[in-house]
Design a protein around this nucleic acid. Sequence first.
DNA 1: ACCTGAACACCGTTCAAGT
DNA 2: ACCTGAACACCGTTCAAGT
Lengths: 227, 227
Amino acid sequence: MAGRRRWSTEEILDAAAELLRTSDADSFSVRKLAAALGTDSSSLYRHFRSKTELLRAVADRILLTAMADHRPEGDWKQRVTALALRAREAFGQQPQLAAVWGRYASGGTGSRLAMEELLQALRASGLPDAEIPARYHRIVVLIVALISSEAAVSSITPEEYEQGMELFRVAALGADPERFPALAHFARDVRPLGVERGAAFEEILAAQLAQIEAEIPPGPPTAGGKG
Amino acid sequence: MAGRRRWSTEEILDAAAELLRTSDADSFSVRKLAAALGTDSSSLYRHFRSKTELLRAVADRILLTAMADHRPEGDWKQRVTALALRAREAFGQQPQLAAVWGRYASGGTGSRLAMEELLQALRASGLPDAEIPARYHRIVVLIVALISSEAAVSSITPEEYEQGMELFRVAALGADPERFPALAHFARDVRPLGVERGAAFEEILAAQLAQIEAEIPPGPPTAGGKG
DNA sequence: ACCTGAACACCGTTCAAGT
DNA sequence: ACCTGAACACCGTTCAAGT
């Protein structure tokens, strides 16, 4: 096994995923990946046209892993929520992948599994087929935005975090009550981005799903009730 | 005027904003900014501790410009929507700034103006003061996520866009109907991220605001009616 | 035919040496 | 006292020259 020289595309993706998982913040690079594989960065360009293409493939792999053992449960809203939380967890501490995924989507098998589950959940909602693509699009835009934004915020360094908190404190607590009456009034209660974000994610998604539910025309209930 | 050697922080911010507005996608760099000013990049580090700090200051300036002539109109939901659309327009084609803003927020005067207007709008909604900070946070998280995500998606190059579209087409149109029945069924109707995003932004925000409105306790209507 | 060392054209940031 | 040229430690990507 030692001194191996040839690497399959699969092995490269695995190594990249591993490096992304274990390395700090934004420190992933093609050169470091090559070094971890004991080869030169130039040889990786035989497998991928660019760093983006490589990261896109890794992102799909992450999604695939997250979706592989996913079993839908509950009503359609619970299914969409569970799907979103899975994706969120998968990309949680991998801001670079979340950013790539957020910009280009992934477009592989992982992506297919996620698309399929979301579409199935929407079909189970009772929405007519004609209404589903627009709602699907809205949900995807929302989930991708929330996940990639959250990952970006979570990846700032402690120093950057402190700097941001300080700026926020100055902006809020130092606001002139004459010019900024509402801000001065709530200065001690408002929180900056990135603090206690967890709940916001689910609340925002729930509001979107509730809105879609309100648009469902009355009809026979779908199967799944207890009695 | 020619041959000037000293630059104020203000002038540097203006030059940076100008360079960001006119340069392509991700091509902004400290070195290019220094070159545009006719100086060396090292001299800029007297004014800013890091590139992030510089960009954060420029982002706040963008927000300040967008908010300076903003006059609130309509009911609280219209005010929040107008605010969100202003910010969206301001950061629209400046993905680097949107990314920095999305990660750290800006924390200057522009930020204050935006915070103030959002808080005032929420107060006008009839929500009790105690409920406002949590709703405020939800709205901020949502708007920042949508704007920075949209900017990121909009900044991909034409080649990357085509690559992404091709991946999406393969994933959707090539899906095996046995394994991916819903995806195969909707293959021609679903759209990838970044296509016709405009409507989704407003729909998602509207759903969130409707949800918040539903949480408002009954009370005397606020002023503003016609008759 | 396949692979890769070395190079190209960049980065952000620092600091010793200059004026 | 102030400024900055040159350097440090990196990037992603290409391609001629090697085996």
